[in-house]
Amino acid sequence: MIHLLGPAVLAAALAGIGVYGILARRNAVLVLIGAELLLNAANVLLVTASALPAGGLAGLEHSQTYHDPLIPGQVMTIFVITVAAAEIGLGLAIVLLLFRARGTVELTAVRELGEASPRHTETPS
């Protein structure tokens, strides 16, 4: 018998840390690290949920032993990890492209969307 509160609070903490990492970092690779942490927060929650019997919290009262044969929590986690692998692969490819184009991976140098950019023009030339 284990308390589920611990992994749940861990998931919340990782989510907060991930959000901070995404928002507070200037280096594109470090932003991707924040995104990985956010994804892992979701994974922790999924695995924690898979420890519950079928039906989740509502199923507790009926049975402690019945399991969902599809094991959705853990299978979903594996899927998320797969998607994360794809995401990081593509994301790092973009970062590399950015580095080769600009010579930097600092996101503050990429401001074409904003008006503050010195290269901003109202009409693209």
Partner: peptide
């Protein structure tokens, strides 16, 4: 508010 910083926009989203 239109800084052009992608993470800046992400702040607003969150």
């Amino acid at each position: 508010t239109q800084t052009g910083l992608a993470t800046g926009y992400a702040v607003w989203v969150l």
